[in-house]
């Protein structure tokens, strides 16, 4: 059984699928940007029990590796890594923007833009779909201010939460595909139509550090 989940966006999305056909046996998606840590494990447990499976039936785990806000993203990655390690199975990482691109049914090249917070977007550009539905990533993933990449994205349908939040700056029509779907992730990994990478987080930003200077003077001036 293939277990798939993604926590790179405001959504916690989980799916259980046949590892060969990609047929979906159970799935759920909850949008709540602040509760990835609380929602993910119960959602996995529910999917397993809905499909009448136990964790021992899992043969592979697929996880979105971002880019996405760090705290939520790590919940998915650490869950995938620990589960896979104790179950002795493999983890397939997939760029979360690739999942969104794969969700589009348009027979055209598309752009994906998701919410990177701090008034920025994570984005990537994709070719039109091949016969098997896969899409080649042409540029990205990268993180930028919407206005700075509007030119690059112009003329393309833009998918993802970023297109909703920054419709004006991107001059894009908001699509109703806002968040990655674990169903699409599961099906894409099962059928080999999504590119698999190591389960390493795509942070795309260095950690914020405020360098502390020397000790401040405490003597009266």
């Amino acid at each position: 059984m293939l277990l798939a989940f993604d926590t790179s966006s405001a959504a916690v999305t989980v799916a259980l699928a046949d590892p060969v056909s990609g047929e979906i046996l159970a799935s759920s998606t909850t949008v709540d940007a602040l509760r990835h840590g609380e929602l993910l494990a119960p959602a996995i447990a529910s999917a397993l029990s809905a499909a009448g499976c136990t964790p021992r039936d899992l043969t592979r785990i697929a996880v979105g590796v971002g880019p996405g806000p760090f705290t939520g993203l790590r919940v998915g990655l650490v869950t995938a890594r620990t589960m896979a390690d104790v179950l002795g199975i493999e983890v397939a990482g997939v760029c979360s923007l690739d999942i969104l691109a794969r969700q589009s049914s348009l027979a055209l090249p598309v752009a994906v833009a998701t919410d990177a917070r701090r008034k920025e977007i994570y984005w990537a550009l994709y070719d039109g779909p091949a016969a098997d539905g896969s899409r080649r990533r042409l540029e990205g993933p990268a993180v930028d201010k919407p206005a700075d990449v509007a030119q690059v994205l112009s003329g393309l349908p833009v998918i993802g939460r970023g297109a909703v939040l920054y419709a004006d700056a991107l001059q894009a029509e908001a699509s109703d595909l806002e968040y990655p779907s674990a169903e699409v992730l599961a099906a894409g990994v099962a059928t080999g139509t999504l590119e698999v990478v190591a389960p390493e987080p795509l942070y795309l930003r260095r950690p914020d550090v405020t360098m502390s200077g020397g000790p401040k003077s405490v003597l009266p001036k």
Binding site: G37, A41, V75, V78, A80, T82, M83, V86
Partner: peptide, 13 residues
């Protein structure tokens, strides 16, 4: 959160 998620992954598995 990293530790809690890892512990859940273990307990669940």
């Amino acid at each position: 959160l990293v530790g809690v998620a890892a512990a859940k992954g273990l307990a669940l598995s």
